[in-house]
Amino acid sequence: MCLAIPAKIVEIEGKDAVVDYGELKQKIRLDLLEDVKIGDYVLVHVGYAIQKLDEEEAKETLRILEELASLEE
């Protein structure tokens, strides 16, 4: 139940928003976040955005993983 899915904010009206999961759109609430903008990626859990995702950090983790995998013994 702690599954939270990344989605992109496409509409905002007050604390109501619409997110796009790629194939599916859903109405969600923004009570738990401040300063959310259209185009932001958020984690959605039981109909609420619980955090903004940091794109730079996402790239960085993947870079570290690839670097780690390419290290020779």
Binding site: L32, Q51, D54
Partner: peptide, 18 residues
């Protein structure tokens, strides 16, 4: 922290407060 794209040191202060 191996999940930096979603977890910050302070977490989500708005959610904690509520």
């Amino acid at each position: 922290n191996a999940y930096t794209r979603a977890v910050r040191e302070e977490g989500n202060p708005v959610a904690q407060k509520i």
